[in-house]
Every structure is written in structure tokens, then in C-alpha cells.
Design a protein around this nucleic acid. Structure first.
Lengths: 360, 360
DNA sequence: TGAACCAATGAAAGCGCTTACAGACACCTG
DNA sequence: CAGGTGTCTGTAAGCGCTTTCATTGGTTCA
């Protein structure tokens, strides 16, 4: 009867609140709160008693209440296209790790490469009061960007770097990175290249790299046969299927630029099962450098992308912003060319259709 | 001057609140709240005006306030060992997808196979008011379980199923699943098996499977030479290194049971580079069935684990519990044996040291 | 000795929502 | 027409914290 108000029970939480700790420790709630948030202003004596009270009561702060009162949720959101690809999962791991280290919790959503879904999910994260947001890519609706600026949370676009971007970003320059691969192949004598990649309409990095390939070829006086460009999804089976289509062409390409290492692996697998010699008959490049890529037969020539570095840099950027620290809007984390054995001199036309080399 | 109180600005959010919507729509805050949470009780007229007000003001609900007032955060937490492995990332994708569909947001933490970290991170998620929790495995401190029950949030242990578990769980039975592999190899004439797996002390599934291997061998009157058991980490390089150690033994095993498909792939890669014929000279099994496994040379005999199914079942279970619906505590999602080409009859002793077959 | 300062604390007013309760109104029913 | 019923709405009291402001008692300094 000591409490005549209808007591709304809190299912789903231990029912100990800050006030209980205060009573137990013989101090005011304000002091307990200060102990939690800024311990140096409370006396040793009070600290000791509060600590004891927290321990014996098993008190856990109620973050929603804290968020409401202090206007700080201590959460940061991320929306990524998928976790299927090791690329994003490593980024997220590094990101989450950095956040946790700094006392932030990650709210995660997956967009499945769908722009509407990305927007929708980001909205929900904002409603949840995330103090900052990590996103992938930069192409999105004006409405999305205007929400972001209206709400005023710091955000960062990852996986790309453009020195003239109007938004904070961290990643690498896709054009020049992609160009390295094209130059490499052309330098090996390849004249008829092919591309197997994702859907440019859902993925601005794919679109950029595709353009970069065309531009790079142009600079060599070459062009890209549209029949040699296959836009597909990111699975091994898709990579295999794409190579089959390419090999069915009457003028077969001598090299394949795969959009990522999964696709490239698929190409390698298919080449193997068809007895196509790589790199004797066909050169293959990947993009991303997965852990497995150096172990494939032959080891894959690819681009090592800074997955963890991007996650960490994004976290550091956002945390710095939230702490009011000055920090540059754009961070370039270069991707590196990994020359391995899946690329080699273009077969001379005379040999082009033979099954060369020692296979696998 | 209409507001003489010191106005704490809300940086990081659009400053429109429910009350503003109410004023704009000419109704009380309660009605707006009802519109948001239980629209069927508000009149069509009011609905229309509130909808318009929300749209023109660009109102976004403040979830922390809502959580505080209603005692429902609409968030669910998950702690997984890693996202590095496709296993858990697929589970998380499926889980998150299901949550989002039901209006829940995922708070994600990664424990890196560390029990203290798992506990710590789960605590933080609980502080954030997650209404339910998905975990991996079942071995954890009594303190952890007591917190879970004290706080009273529904939780579920994933990746294992035990009909006699006292906690909700969803997954498969490791013992019998593992046994299938052992029986398969023994049935092929293998007598000297080896195991390459993770660290049983950090991973109860590994420990269970290891015991299951010993038991299964015993049932065939065989035993497991301790020198043939290698506990390592989950990388391709670790798998390769482990095979090297196994091959350096004076009595070489004729089969390797790898703890997961990554390790098994490493074994395959190393076997290839050493010219060891698989399965002619050495049989290899995996565990998990990654997307790549069917494409390897030779395609990997392994166990297909229900990754997405586990994520979905876990989400469904927790959501049902939160909705007060009856639902069984334990869900068995069987793992399936995938017979492929990496296993074959044990080499006869006479041939055991030769390099057989056509390699790759 | 009194003014000035400082460190430590408590009282109380919210943060932006939800919800119990009661009131207002329209409509039946006997 | 009194009384009941049902639908919709508003009032106001919190949810568990943070934080401003005022107060206390002790120290230092001129």
C-alpha cells in the first residue's frame, strides 16, 4: 500500500532504477547520475557507497531514459547493402569494434542493394536516435540527403573517395584503381577485354568502375564490345554462367575483368571445368582481394581493398565529429594492386582457341 | 519570449515533436499518439488532418521517448562471435530481415569468440532496452544466464539443438551430424582419421563435435590419435599449415575432418600445392557448406548447415514470444550431409605414400 | 574577520512520448 | 425522456534519467 498509484510494471528489465541506488547509497539521484556520467565531481565517500549500491542491487542504467534526458543515445547506425560479401562484413566488424571501444552501440540494417530500402532503414535508425550514420556509396535521392542534413546527424559515405565530393567520404578512387587493371591487361597485349560485374543501377561503385574501364580502354585506342559486358549478380554460379556466355561468343575475349573476387572465382572455376588455361588462354582479374583469392588456382590478380580500414576510418570520423573534434571530411584509403598468376600475356591469335599450358 | 525556459536544443534531430503535430492538426497529443500506435481508434477526420500535419512538418517519432513511456524499444539484440565467417553473416542477414519486416531494429555486437566480451556486449544491449536477444551457442557463465532471467527478456541460443536443453534453442544436433561424417569415412575404409578444427574452449559447438568424433570412432572400435587433432583458427592459411603438420607425421592419416569449410578449403589448397591426390590419397570433409564449397577441386563433401533458417527461426521465435504467442522453446533445423568428390575409398597401405590419380 | 572562492550536493524541472481516466457527444432502447 | 451504450477525444500523470540552479560548509586570502 506504500504506493497507491497504478504501477506499470516493466517487463523485460530488472526493476532497479537510479533512484533506488540513490536511496540505498543515501545520496540524491543527481549524485548517482553524476557518478555515472562524470565521476570526478563526486566525493570519494559517495563514490564508494554508490558503487556498493550498484553492485548489490545489480543496477543497469536505462539508456532510453538517458537518451531522452541527455539527448545522447550513444548509438551509431550503419546501413550496408549486404553482409553476404566478406567485404562489408569485415567493414562492419571493424566498425562495430571501434564503436564498442568508444562506448557506442551499433544499430545495423541491410538494404539489399535497394535504394528505397536504404532510405527507409536509415529513417528508422534516425528515429531510434542514432547520433551518426555510416552508409555505403554516395548515390541516393535528394530527399535522403535533405533528411540527413535536416536531422543534422554526422554521416559518412564509405567505399569511395572523391576529392570533390560534397559529402564526407572514406574509401578509394575507383576510376584510377580500375584503370590499373585495364592498363595491366592491355600492357600484356590483351586487346579484346570483357567485363563481368554487378548491376550499375543499384551500385554507384560498379557504375563508376564500368565507366573507368571504357575510358581506360579508350585511352589505349581500344573499345569495349557491349557483348563482352555482362551485368549479373554476385555469386560463384553467376560468374561461371557469365564466362560460359562469353566463351560462346564467336570472337572470344582474351581477358575477363570481374567486378569482384567472387565473380572472378566463378570464372576461374568454370575455366577449370572447361579446360580453359588461365592465364595461358584467358587472363582473369578480380576486385576486392578476398582471403581465398591468393589460394585459388591460379592465385588471382586483383585489387586489395581496405575493408577494415574503411570501417575504422568511418568510425573514427564519426566519433571525432560527435566529440566536436576537427577532422577532415574526406579520407583516402588507397586500394592496392595485387599481381598474382591469373593474368599473363595475351595468347597470340594462332593459339587463341587451343587449350594451352598445363591446365591446373 | 513565449518560452522563457532555457531551451535545450536537440542537436542531431529535426526538432519537430508530437506536440507540434498535434497543434498543427488541431488535436491533442494523445490523439496523435493514438494515430501512431493504434490508428483504428481515431476518426477518419482526425486521421486525415494528422497525416497532413506529419507530412508537412516532416515529423519523426522519437523512439527513446516512446521506449521510455511505453516500455517497448522495438529493438532486438544479437551477439555473434564474428561476421568474418559467412555462416554468421547469413544468419544475421536473415535475422535482421525478419526483424525489420516486423518493425524491429537490430542492435548488433560481435564477441570475437570471447566469453567476457559476449557478456559485456549483451549487457550493453540490455541497457539499451532490447526486448529480446539472439545468442550463439549455449555455454556461458551462470552470472550471464542469471542476468538474462532476472531482466526477463526472451532469448534464444542458436546453432545448436538439444531436446533436453533448459534454454530456448534453435539449430541442429551436432553429435549425430558429426557422426554422419565419421561413419561416411569409416565406411570408405578409413581407419586413421585426423581433425583440424577451432578452439573447443571458446566454442561449445567445436567441443561437442570433437567429442562426437571420438565417440563415433569408438563405436567403430577406432580411436583418435591426439597427434592427429589440430586446434587452430579459422583461416585458409591455418588449414594449410595444419595439413602440413599432419603430413609430417610418420603415420599419416588417410582422411581429414575439418571443423569448417574454410579450414577444409585450406586443406584442399595445400594438398593441391603438394601434389597430394584428393580423394585418392587423402579424403577431406568440411562442415558448413559455404557457397564456394561445391566449386572447389574436388567439390567438398561437407555438412550443409541451415544458416538462414536459423536466423529466421530465431527471429520468429523471439517475435512470437514478444507478442505473447505460444511457441515451442526448441526448434530443430536439421543439417544435411552433402556427398561430393573430396572423399573416397581409403588408399590401400601399399599405395598410401604414392601420389595418385590425376591431381587437379 | 569578512569576503571570496571552491567542491560537493540536492531539489526540481523537464526530455518527448504513452495511457488511464474521465468527459463529451450521438445514438439506441424501453 | 431517463438511462444505457459506444465512439472519440482531451487532460494529466508519469516513464527513468540529466542538468540547471541554489545551497551548504569548508577553505583561503587580504
Amino acid at each position: 500500500m506504500e504506493n497507491n498509484a497504478k504501477k506499470r510494471q516493466r517487463p523485460g528489465r530488472a526493476n532497479i532504477k537510479l533512484e533506488d541506488v540513490a536511496i540505498h547509497a543515501g545520496v540524491s539521484p543527481a549524485t548517482v547520475s553524476r557518478f555515472l556520467n562524470n565521476p570526478k565531481v563526486v566525493s570519494e565517500e559517495a563514490k564508494k557507497r554508490i558503487k556498493a549500491a550498484i553492485a548489490t542491487l545489480g543496477y543497469m542504467p536505462h539508456r532510453a531514459a538517458r537518451a531522452l534526458a541527455s539527448n545522447h543515445s550513444r548509438t551509431i547506425g550503419a546501413v550496408v547493402p549486404t553482409l553476404d560479401n566478406a567485404i562489408f562484413s569485415r567493414q562492419i566488424m571493424a566498425f562495430q569494434n571501434r564503436l564498442a571501444f568508444n562506448g557506442y552501440t551499433l544499430l545495423l540494417a541491410v538494404s539489399e542493394y535497394d535504394a528505397d530500402s536504404e532510405f527507409q532503414q536509415a529513417r528508422v535508425l534516425l528515429e531510434h536516435g542514432v547520433e551518426a550514420l555510416m552508409l555505403v556509396g554516395e548515390r541516393r535521392s535528394a530527399e535522403f540527403y535533405s533528411l540527413l542534413t535536416r536531422v543534422g546527424v554526422p554521416f559518412v559515405n564509405t567505399w569511395l573517395y572523391r576529392s570533390d565530393s560534397i559529402h564526407p567520404c572514406c574509401g578509394f578512387i575507383h576510376d584510377s584503381t580500375q584503370q590499373v587493371l585495364v592498363d595491366h591487361l592491355v600492357g600484356l597485349g590483351h586487346r579484346r577485354l570483357s567485363v563481368i560485374t554487378g548491376q550499375p543501377e543499384n551500385n554507384d561503385r560498379v557504375a563508376t568502375r564500368l565507366n573507368a574501364i571504357v575510358a581506360a580502354l579508350e585511352s589505349h585506342g581500344l573499345d569495349l564490345d557491349p557483348r563482352c559486358v555482362i551485368n549479373t549478380h554476385y555469386s560463384y554460379a553467376d560468374g561461371r554462367e557469365a564466362l560460359r556466355r562469353l566463351m560462346a561468343l564467336d570472337e572470344q575475349p582474351t581477358a575477363v575483368l570481374a567486378g569482384n573476387d567472387v565473380l572472378a572465382s566463378g570464372v576461374l572455376f568454370e575455366a577449370h571445368s572447361q579446360g580453359i588455361d588461365v592465364p595461358g588462354h584467358l587472363s582473369v582479374t578480380g576486385f576486392g582481394d578476398l582471403a581465398i583469392s591468393e589460394h585459388l588456382y591460379p592465385p588471382l590478380t586483383t585489387i586489395r581493398t581496405p575493408k577494415e580500414e574503411i570501417g575504422e576510418a568511418a568510425a573514427d570520423f564519426l566519433i571525432a565529429r560527435l566529440a566536436g573534434r576537427e577532422t577532415p571530411d574526406r579520407t583516402e584509403l588507397p586500394a592496392r594492386f595485387c599481381l598474382r598468376a591469373s593474368t599473363g600475356p595475351a595468347a597470340t591469335p594462332a593459339l587463341a582457341h587451343g587449350i594451352g599450358g598445363d591446365g591446373f
